[in-house]
């Protein structure tokens, strides 16, 4: 669709160069981590879109081979997350339109087998959890274990746990547990040496809305929605990159020039400059910073909403 306007003046680039740029985008790496999956699929869809167009010429054949290989990978990598499953389905339907019939059929078969398997695993997991997750007899948990568990908690969760049962209340109200929290919130100057009760002191600070408490509070909210984003490397979902749509990336890969960016219908005015610079940076040698990378422990905690970048 994008091509219709400018394919008369823009010949497609040399196939070799196109393939190099495609390799640089490292889709195989992006597809294998769930948090990059969506964006990678969107860009692949746009690529299919362009290649399926009327004027694809000699780029078409080598690029389609790569694309179908990556689509197969996408089907393999698709995890249980609904968002990813949906985009995977639309990627396959896009692929079916672009690829020769036999190959398209094969991909569809693969997708079907894969989703059947996923559904089976799902229902098995649900059955298992229903079987096992009958109220455990935590009632008689020994004091020292409960104490060790409560020691791991932040003050807000600790206070909530204290309301759960008598034993938990007794254990959670033990005063030594609250001393470090007071130390974290109040400055040493304003802290009395030997207060009546550390817990009381902390409660007062909390009710009084102490300044450092506000920080703890919002941090807790963030933690509940999980993950702090600030200290992560720049990536495709970073704000300065959001203005580059998947289509622009796809156009860049196929045509090799950024000129189309200003022609493309959905970027205009101020966005252009940042879009182009973002793309430049993105296609620069530091390609391994293209996609968001996480330490393994963060993966499970990824919130759904934070990943919906909402481009286009």
């Amino acid at each position: 669709m994008l091509l219709s306007s400018d394919d008369s003046e823009n010949e497609f680039d040399d196939p070799q160069l196109v393939l190099t740029r495609y390799k640089k985008a490292r889709y195989e790496a992006a597809l294998s981590c769930p948090h990059n999956y969506l964006r990678a699929c969107q860009e692949l869809i746009e690529l299919f879109n362009i290649v399926a167009g009327p004027a694809a010429g000699r780029v078409k054949k080598p690029l389609l081979a790569e694309l179908s290989a990556d689509t197969r990978l996408a089907i393999d990598c698709c995890d249980g997350v609904l968002r990813n499953a949906t985009i995977c389905r639309s990627l396959v339907s896009e692929a079916v339109r672009a690829l020769p019939q036999a190959k398209g059929k094969e991909l569809q078969r693969l997708l079907k087998a894969r989703s059947l398997k996923a559904a089976r695993e799902d229902s098995k997991a649900i059955r298992n959890s229903q079987q096992h997750d009958v109220a455990p007899a935590v009632e008689q948990m020994p004091h020292d274990i409960l104490g060790a568990v409560l020691d791991e908690l932040d003050p807000f969760s600790l206070a909530a746990a204290a309301c759960a049962s008598r034993q938990w209340h007794e254990e959670a109200s033990k005063d030594h547990r609250w001393q470090p929290f007071v130390a974290a919130v109040l400055s040493p100057v304003s802290t009395p040496q030997q207060p009546q009760s550390w817990r009381e002191l902390f409660c007062q600070a909390a009710v009084g809305g102490h300044a450092r408490m506000a920080y703890h509070r919002s941090r807790r909210r963030m933690l509940r929605k999980t993950l702090l984003w600030t200290d992560l490397p720049p990536c495709r979902e970073a704000p300065d990159f959001k203005c580059v749509t998947p289509r622009q990336v796809a156009t860049f890969i196929v045509k090799g020039s950024i000129k189309e960016l200003s022609d493309s219908e959905d970027s205009e005015g101020d966005d252009d400059a940042s879009a182009v610079s973002g793309l430049h940076r993105d296609m620069a040698p530091a390609v391994n910073r293209l996609w968001r990378t996480f330490p393994a422990s963060c993966k499970l905690a990824l919130p759904e909403t934070a990943l919906d970048t909402g481009q286009q």
Binding site: I145, A148, V149, E152, L153, D154, S157, A160, A164, R224
Partner: peptide
Amino acid sequence: TDAMAERIRGKSP
């Protein structure tokens, strides 16, 4: 104990 604390964290009573 870590895992148990993780299950308590952020929950209401």
